[in-house]
């Protein structure tokens, strides 16, 4: 039994190493605002996005909905994960949007926009 578990662990680490070595995964960003809105609408049933703010590094985005709620997107490996939140979860300062997701494991998200922050309508 211990031999089997040891061999399995070794195989796991080897496969993980090979995945890194083969450069599997993706560094692609979220894309443009339209792509962010499409992702948010696909993830959240009934959500209609009207505007999106993309982080300068392309790894996170905030999509504002027509009902005042927001969807925050963030890269999770080679995919995007999202959270649907009330507009009040977003705090803005001079340079960035700070989104408190209330989910310790998802984490809070900071978005430094590519354009002027004034373009966003969240509080």
């Amino acid at each position: 039994m211990w031999l089997q578990l040891g061999a399995s662990l070794a195989a796991i680490l080897a496969l993980g190493g090979i995945a890194v070595w083969l450069k599997l995964g993706s560094d692609d960003g979220i894309g443009d605002a339209a792509a962010a809105i499409a992702t948010a609408e696909a993830d959240i049933a009934g959500f209609t996005g009207i505007r999106a703010t993309i982080d300068v590094e392309g790894h996170a985005a905030l999509v504002e909905g027509e009902d005042g709620s927001v969807v925050v997107l963030k890269r999770a490996g080679a995919r995007l994960a999202s959270r649907h939140l009330p507009g009040s979860a977003v705090r803005r300062d001079r340079d960035a949007l700070h989104i408190a997701t209330g989910d310790r494991w998802f984490g809070d998200v900071v978005i430094t926009p590519t354009g002027a922050l004034a373009d966003t309508h969240v509080s």
């Binding site: 195989a11 796991i12 080679a78």
Partner: peptide
């Protein structure tokens, strides 16, 4: 390449 992600693979196998 997007079919696999090393961190996801390690999580699955773990």
């Amino acid at each position: 390449r997007r079919r696999y992600c090393p961190r996801d693979t390690l999580t699955s196998l773990g």
